[in-house]
Simulated assay, not measured.
Amino acid sequence: MDPFATLHQPIGVFDAGIGSYAAVRLLQERFPNQDLIYLADRASFPYGGKNRQALLEVTAQAVQRLQGLGASAILMASNAPSVTVLEDLRRTASVPLFGVVPPVAEALALSKSGQIGVLGVRSMVQSPELGAYIAAASRGRGQAFSFNASALVDLVESGAFLTDPARTTAQVDVFVRAILATQPEIDVFTLSSTHLPWLDAYFQRLFPGKAFVDPVRASIEALECLTTTGTGRVVCAVTENPTHTASAFRSMLAAMRIDLQPVVLGGLQ
């Protein structure tokens, strides 16, 4: 039996790997009867290493896949494409499409110094769209500096944050200290890749005087008007390539004690 056919008006959630499961988990907590499709687009990992056109192409394919699987709405749980290509995707999507964006206004409201750091992948922090977004969100109430945290995203996607805590601790420590050496007044960081909240325990332990803001929660609330009563089931789908295999993804789910059996998706029809 097709596992997707048994779902009732599911909401699709996707990014290029394990990061978007954090959004799935929050949706389950907030809307326990909502059916979900969780797509890990491993074949296109990493989103953060792609230019704008390539990012638009692979995320459009992911949206098309989820629509084909019956998604009634879609959350693109990835900051980079949400900042850079979301509006383009909305023009062609046949269902409501939501994104996850850096919580700049929230971070500035928390900051005592008026200086915050936006941590994200390379394609986002180097994009002109992020600069425009920050300017609109901050409204002159402070300063937001952006930093390429792709190396930390790789720690999560590789599973090293689970299997090698010593390496993870050292890498997180060096990364944040390098930022503070040049911008010591930053007291709030936005974790603007859905992978980064998996490192929250490391951030909190190493830098207890700083605040780290997860961008996903506000996006979850935006979906409330579209939620329905189903069985609360989650069906996981995964794409793969020779480097990022479905088998490796299954191993990561097992290591994280996530009880899902991903369905491997082939090429688009």
Results as ranks from 00 to 15, higher is better:
Arg257Leu: 13
Asn241Gly: 12
Leu75Trp: 15
Lys50Met: 12
Val85Trp: 08
Ile74Gly: 04
Arg25Lys: 15
Ala105Met: 08
Ser113Leu: 03
Ser193Gln: 11
Ala105Trp: 09
Ser219Pro: 12
Asn79Met: 10
Arg257His: 15
Leu66Ile: 07
Leu268Glu: 11
Val58His: 00
Leu206Thr: 02
Asn148Lys: 03
Ala237Thr: 04
Ala160Phe: 13
Phe189Ala: 10
Leu39Trp: 02
Val213Tyr: 01
Asn51Gln: 10
Tyr21Pro: 06
Ser94Asp: 14
Tyr47Ser: 01
Leu7Ala: 04
Leu89Ile: 09
Phe161Gln: 06
Asp187His: 07
Arg139Gly: 10
Leu226Asn: 03
Ala136Pro: 00
Ser113His: 05
Leu75Gln: 14
Gly209Cys: 01
Arg90Lys: 15
Ala201Met: 12
Asp41Leu: 01
Ala54Leu: 08
Ser251Glu: 15
Gln64Asp: 13
Val156Cys: 05
Leu199Thr: 01
His8Val: 02
Asp187Thr: 10
Cys236Gln: 13
Cys236Lys: 06
Ser94Ile: 02
Met256Leu: 15
Val234Glu: 05
Asp214Trp: 01
Pro242Thr: 08
Ala23Gln: 13
Pro102Gln: 03
Arg52Ile: 06
Val101Trp: 00
Asp154Leu: 11
Val104Met: 06
Gly140Met: 05
Ala201Cys: 10
Val235Lys: 00
Glu224Gly: 05
Arg42Trp: 01
Arg30Trp: 12
Asp154Glu: 15
Ala5Asn: 07
Asn241Ile: 11
Val213Pro: 02
Leu89Ser: 09
Thr228His: 11
Pro3Trp: 05
Gly114Phe: 05
Glu221Leu: 14
Val156Gln: 05
Leu56Thr: 01
Asp2Asn: 14
Pro165Leu: 01
Val234Phe: 07
Val100Ser: 03
Gln34Trp: 04
Glu221Ile: 06
Ala5Val: 03
Gln171His: 00
Gly140Leu: 04
Val188Arg: 02
Ala40Glu: 03
Gly140Ser: 10
Thr6Ala: 15
Val13Gln: 04
Gln115Ser: 11
Thr243Glu: 11
Pro184Thr: 11
Leu253Ile: 09
Val188Leu: 06
Glu57Gly: 00
Ser251Arg: 14
Arg90Phe: 08
Ile134Tyr: 03
Arg91Leu: 10
Gly48Ile: 06
Asp259Trp: 01
Pro184Ala: 12
Asp259Lys: 07
Arg65Glu: 04
Phe98Lys: 11
Val95Tyr: 03
Tyr21Met: 12
Val125Leu: 11
Leu55Met: 08
Ile11Met: 09
Ser219Met: 10
Gly230Trp: 06
Val213Arg: 00
Ser78Gly: 10
Met252Lys: 13
Arg167His: 02
Val58Trp: 00
Gly17Gln: 05
